[in-house]
């Protein structure tokens, strides 16, 4: 390892840095999560082509959400994936290469709003129930179903918030969890002059 570090040429160092590979011995590779929005032809097979590309090329796919946009011929995908710089740029290029993709947008690092919806069934009765409802209140969740043993709650928010809620429910006994996967959208740019017009 260290021997290699000594023999790397300047050009090899440039290449390693550009790929997000560790240059110093022992350093961890720089792997990051990315959120990519894709506008796609709303046609047969288009979604499959996207998903298929991820599996055929061995890319990581953490979640995908899909829905139609205001234009019924266009659907919108939100893809959550991870990799180093080189892998992410490959993913973006391979997405662009598909004939059905109209626009590909990596929103990571930009100012964006992100939401995930989660429905969770928790086992609880009596005192426990009051405790669960209190946490639910704090997270601004909604109760969507009630039985003597079970509360079904709906939480909406950034993935981190949903994660936190699910963790808090664990000690009570989770019966079932359904998560939608993320959707994300870039915020409109703030007017530069302070907003008066």
């Amino acid at each position: 390892m260290s021997e290699q570090a000594i023999t790397l040429t300047p050009q090899q160092l440039i290449r390693k840095r550009a790929a997000g590979e560790p240059v110093e011995a022992g350093a961890a590779p720089d792997i990051q999560q990315h959120i990519i929005n894709v506008l796609l032809e709303n046609s047969m097979g288009a979604l499959i082509r996207v998903v298929n590309m991820f599996s055929a090329r061995g890319f990581n796919l953490d979640s995908v959400t899909v829905g139609v946009t205001e234009d019924p011929t266009v659907s919108r995908l939100c893809i959550v994936t991870r990799g180093n710089v080189r892998v992410i740029s490959q993913i973006l290029r391979q997405l662009n290469r598909l004939v059905d993709t109209i626009e590909v947008d990596d929103v990571t690092g930009t100012d964006f709003v992100e939401r995930e919806l989660c429905i969770i069934k928790v086992r609880c009765r009596g005192e426990k129930r009051a405790e669960v409802l209190q946490v639910n209140e704090i997270f601004r969740g909604r109760v969507v179903d009630v039985t003597p043993d079970i509360l079904a709650l709906e939480i909406v928010g950034p993935t981190q918030k949903v994660d936190a809620f699910v963790n808090l429910m664990k000690p009570h006994g989770i019966d079932e969890v359904a998560r939608s996967g993320r959707v994300a959208m870039q915020r409109a740019p703030q007017p530069a002059d302070g907003g008066s017009d």
Binding site: Q11, A18, A19
Partner: peptide, 23 residues
């Protein structure tokens, strides 16, 4: 090519910097 800077002229963007980083 450990000493070479790379200029890559290529129609398929996914081939650029795939195996060798293009300067």
């Amino acid at each position: 090519a450990p000493h070479a800077a790379i200029i890559h002229i290529e129609i398929d963007k996914s081939c650029i910097s795939k195996n060798i980083y293009a300067d």
